[in-house]
């Protein structure tokens, strides 16, 4: 079974909470200066793919895992780490075009990768990124490829027959479905899906492996073709101020702090509930 996991490197926005943001030409400057992480939903997708491979191996089914990101060289450290965790191939799409808020272009590039380096059986991807929050790329990929997709994935198991048992949570509830690839599985809030930590030996081995670099020429795609896919177009970006009073309740002991909190702010409210 060949599995493609597209993922994104994002700024750790938790580190910017409550800070003043600087916006230039409808792009925030601040994320460029903070630590980078794998987008949390994508991290779950990457780990679930590894778990699927573990499960398939138990049943004697061979798997080949590809990780793909559209980014600059800064992503290579993450790609090496993924090879160390068990990915067979890590590819980086070196794209000079600004694809922020252009999920249609990203979906088109994923579909192009699929066509050139396929066939694949599964695409597993996170449901949205923590920066752009488009929440569209997986669904547009489904439309580009013509593959069906299931969203809200929380886990899955490989079966002996090559079919996959998939668990998802949506407004309806928790659903178990058995699917036959090809499929796009869109990962939501999946418990116990933090990316595994590779061994030191695996990290050393991975350091010697090549990362596959691809670019627009690989697919005969021009920057203009990607730029025309922007729809809707971001025309304004402003900071949201969520700050409140932040009144500090102080006292010599925890007991006195709680007493003050209860008497002054909670007692009346709780009695009226």
């Amino acid at each position: 079974m060949r599995v493609l996991v597209p993922f994104k490197i994002v700024a750790d926005l938790d580190l910017l909470r409550g800070k003043k943001w600087t916006i230039t030409n409808n792009r925030p400057e601040d994320p460029a200066f903070v630590k980078k992480i794998i987008n949390p939903y994508d991290e779950s997708a990457l780990e679930l793919a590894l778990k699927l491979a573990d499960n398939c191996n138990k049943h004697g089914l061979e798997t080949e895992l590809h990780a793909l990101t559209i980014d600059k060289k800064q992503a290579d450290l993450f790609l090496k780490k993924l090879i160390a965790t068990g990915y067979n191939l890590a590819s980086r799409f070196d794209c000079a075009v600004d694809l922020q808020f252009n999920p249609s272009a990203k979906a088109a590039l994923i579909a192009a990768y699929l066509e050139k380096f396929g066939p694949f059986d599964l695409i597993i991807m996170g449901m949205q990124s923590s920066d752009e929050d488009n929440a569209k790329t997986p669904y547009l990929t489904a439309e580009e490829t013509g593959w069906p997709c299931i969203s809200g994935i929380t886990g899955f198991n490989g079966c002996e027959t090559g079919s996959i048992r998939v668990f998802s949570v949506n407004d309806q509830g928790t659903i178990e479905q058995t699917i036959h690839p090809p499929y796009i599985l869109v990962v939501g809030n999946a418990p116990n899906a933090y990316l595994r930590i590779p061994t030191l030996k695996a990290i050393k081995t991975a350091a010697e492996k090549e990362i596959k670099i691809i670019n627009l020429e690989t697919f005969n795609i021009t920057p203009d073709q990607l730029n025309t896919k922007v729809d809707p177009d971001l025309i304004d970006l402003v900071a949201v101020d969520n700050s409140r009073k932040s009144l500090l309740i102080e006292g010599p002991s925890a007991e006195e702090k709680v007493s003050l909190l209860y008497d002054k702010y909670l007692k009346g409210r709780l009695s009226s509930l």
Binding site: R17, I23, P28, S130, D233, I235, D236, V240
Partner: peptide, 20 residues
């Protein structure tokens, strides 16, 4: 037609122009 939504994990509000 302009639609507004939170982006950057709720830190920013983006306004988007629907085209088609």
């Amino acid at each position: 037609m302009i639609g507004s939504k939170k982006v950057y994990s709720g830190n920013l509000l983006g306004s988007f122009h629907f085209i088609k």
